[in-house]
Design a protein around this nucleic acid. Structure first.
Lengths: 133, 133
DNA sequence: CGCGCAATGTTATATAGTAACGTAATCGCA
DNA sequence: TGCGATTACGTTACTATATAACATTGCGCG
């Protein structure tokens, strides 16, 4: 079957899992070039979009970067909290918010297909570190 | 005062207002080059970020593009509904959702500074057009 | 086998964004 | 008013992000 494609996905997922912060497609590319000299951008982007479609990876739109899905259940829409101090990203799942959101924007007849919810701010540990000083 | 900077902002806002869909910084650039040959990317980006900071323009993160704020009250966070068929963007304001969102992600101690909420889907008119066929 | 489709590789290029530095306008102040 | 300091703005060049387009490979199937 499509062993090659799946192989890239696995490799990329491994790279992403080594980080706790989102990394760019080109960071992935550079990392993989250490072991696979001839890999090129389209390969990375194809694998990343397959992973994204399968819910294993989230694309962080506001950073143009990618992060491995951290929660057990993939394939749902996650809310991403992005700490602007340390770069850490936390995922939350909140079906109720998605429902409310759909109902608000549905009033005008809009039918939602894909939600992008990203919140920038300060995470707990960076927040307390700042409060201290 | 900084008349030049403000002039660019006004010009750019005029360009954005001529469209009902988000346009990229480089589209703005091309348009302005028709009348100002020597304008260059940093000028556009500086003006766009000033406009964004002032709430006159929204950056659509998931499209890497910009759109003029359509609602009377600027300076609040808007929910953007993006039609993938016609490209139209509709703004909604829903303080309650923002509050719920903050409370969900605040549970872990995260303190939000900036919200990005973008919903891709199909707008009312494109939806009915499709249902018809 | 060998045709045809779908996945992958490869090259090149398009699109988006910013660093760095020079210059000009502006402000504070003697 | 003159002048140094500061900030805004212009300009060049570059870096980063993403995809189009075509070549090649491998695989299913008559």
């Amino acid at each position: 079957m499509n062993t090659r494609g799946e192989m890239w996905q696995a490799e990329i997922l491994r790279v992403l899992n080594r980080h706790h912060t989102p990394i760019s497609a080109y960071d992935v590319l550079e990392t993989l070039r250490e072991t696979h000299e001839k890999i090129s951008p389209p390969t990375i982007y194809r694998a990343l979009s397959a992973l994204t479609k399968r819910g294993r990876v989230h694309r962080v739109e506001s950073l143009n970067a990618f992060i491995a899905c951290q929660c057990g259940q993939h394939q749902h829409t996650s809310i991403l909290s992005i700490c602007e101090d340390c770069g850490a990203v936390e995922e939350s799942v909140a079906p109720k918010i998605l429902k409310d959101l759909s109902s608000v924007i549905g009033k005008s007849g809009f039918s939602p297909m894909r939600h992008v919810i990203e919140v920038h701010g300060t995470c707990a540990s960076c927040g307390s570190r700042k409060a201290q000083s």
